[in-house]
Computed example of a mutant assay.
Amino acid sequence: MFDVEERQRVRDQLLASAEEDPGIVGAAITGSAALGEADRWSDIDLAFSVHGQLSETLERWTTRLYKDFAAVHHWDLPSGNTVYRVFLLPGWLEVDIAFTPETEFGPLGPAWHTVFGHTSQPTPGLPPHHQHLAGLAWHHALHARAVAVKSNETFVVL
């Protein structure tokens, strides 16, 4: 299982790599860490502002996560023009990176901390298709079955 120091190290390395990547023109920390509410079990949530084709940047970053961080699997959750690519690293560390066109890069809620680059005010998109919502519902329902109960710093899966 990953520890907090490892998670911080990986996040710092990802953000440093993003600053060096000419295709990434902005980055933000999102999720619980952006709110100062990360705990020992939190994953890494980042958003990148992409200049140019998303597909090229997605391919480059996927290669980087497998090569430099030994990713064992990934999957995509598209939302409008953004692709959330979710990586599983050794030790069960999850890395979620939102790859967003630079013209749409900006906070959609309070869980956002800009690290570098410029943000825009996103325009509301079309509501999601009902099939997409149904898929999210069963996906999250399955995960809700594995409820972690804290008992003296030990988590038991019910």
Rank of each mutant, 00 (worst) to 15 (best):
S42M: 03
E59V: 09
A111C: 01
A137K: 13
L89K: 09
E56F: 13
D45G: 07
E104K: 07
G106L: 04
K67P: 00
A141V: 08
E37M: 15
G26V: 05
Q131K: 09
V72D: 00
D12R: 15
F48S: 05
D76E: 14
S55N: 07
D3G: 13
A16K: 15
I24F: 08
L126G: 01
R64Q: 06
A47F: 02
H118V: 07
V86W: 00
L54C: 05
T154H: 14
W61T: 02
L108E: 06
W138S: 13
F105E: 04
D43Q: 09
F116E: 04
H113E: 05
D96V: 13
R64D: 00
V115D: 04
S55K: 12
G125H: 03
F105N: 05
P22E: 11
P124D: 09
V10H: 09
T30Q: 06
S151N: 09
R11H: 03
L158A: 11
G91P: 03
S79A: 13
V86L: 12
R11Q: 15
R60F: 00
L93I: 04
T62M: 01
S42C: 06
D76R: 13
L35W: 03
I24V: 15
L65Q: 08
H113M: 05
A71D: 00
F116G: 11
T103I: 11
S49G: 15
L108M: 04
G26I: 05
A111K: 00
Q8F: 06
E37G: 03
A134N: 06
P110G: 08
L142Y: 04
E56P: 00
H139W: 04
S49F: 06
A38K: 06
A16V: 07
Q53T: 11
K150P: 05
D45V: 02
G117D: 06
A18L: 11
G31M: 01
V72E: 13
V25S: 14
G36Y: 12
V149D: 13
S49C: 08
F99S: 03
H129N: 10
